[in-house]
Simulated scan of single mutants.
Amino acid sequence: MGFRGADVKILDLSLRLFVIPFNVASIWIAVKNKQDNSDYGKLEFNNLIGLKYMVCISAISAGYALFAAVSSYLRCLLTKAWLFFVTDQVLAYLMVTSMAALGDFLYLAYNGDQVISWSEACASYGKFCSRLKLALGLHVISVCCFLVLAVISAYRVFRRFEPPFVPSKECEQERT
Rank of each mutant, 00 (worst) to 15 (best):
L136F: 07
V8R: 11
Y53H: 04
L13N: 12
A59E: 04
C122I: 07
D88Y: 04
K169A: 10
S58I: 02
A30W: 03
Y64M: 13
F18Q: 03
A25R: 01
A154T: 10
S61R: 08
S98Y: 05
L13C: 13
A6E: 12
V148W: 01
E174L: 11
E172C: 10
R4M: 09
L132G: 06
R159L: 14
S168E: 00
P164Y: 13
I57C: 05
Y125L: 10
G112N: 01
V115F: 08
W82K: 05
K9V: 05
S142H: 07
D39H: 06
L66F: 07
K9G: 04
L132D: 03
A154F: 02
G137P: 07
L94W: 11
D88S: 14
A109F: 00
A81K: 02
L134C: 09
F84I: 07
I57W: 02
I60P: 15
S72E: 14
E162D: 13
S14F: 13
I29D: 06
R75Y: 15
L136S: 04
F45Q: 02
F146Q: 15
I60C: 15
R75L: 13
L43R: 15
V31Q: 11
H139E: 15
F165T: 06
K127T: 11
L108S: 09
T79Y: 12
P164D: 10
S153P: 01
C144P: 00
L43G: 02
F158P: 06
E174Y: 01
S142Q: 10
V8D: 05
K127R: 03
S58W: 08
R131W: 02
A101F: 07
R4F: 06
L51A: 05
Y40M: 08
F3P: 00
R131S: 11
L43Q: 08
I10N: 09
L13W: 13
F128G: 04
I57A: 07
D12A: 05
Y125C: 06
Y107H: 10
A68W: 13
G103Y: 07
V8P: 04
R159Y: 09
A25M: 08
S98V: 08
F84H: 13
R160G: 12
C129M: 02
E44H: 04
Y110I: 02
L149I: 00
V31M: 05
L106R: 04
I116L: 00
V31H: 03
V8Q: 09
G137M: 04
E170Q: 12
V157M: 10
C122Y: 01
Y107A: 01
G2P: 06
K127I: 08
V148M: 04
G5K: 08
P167W: 00
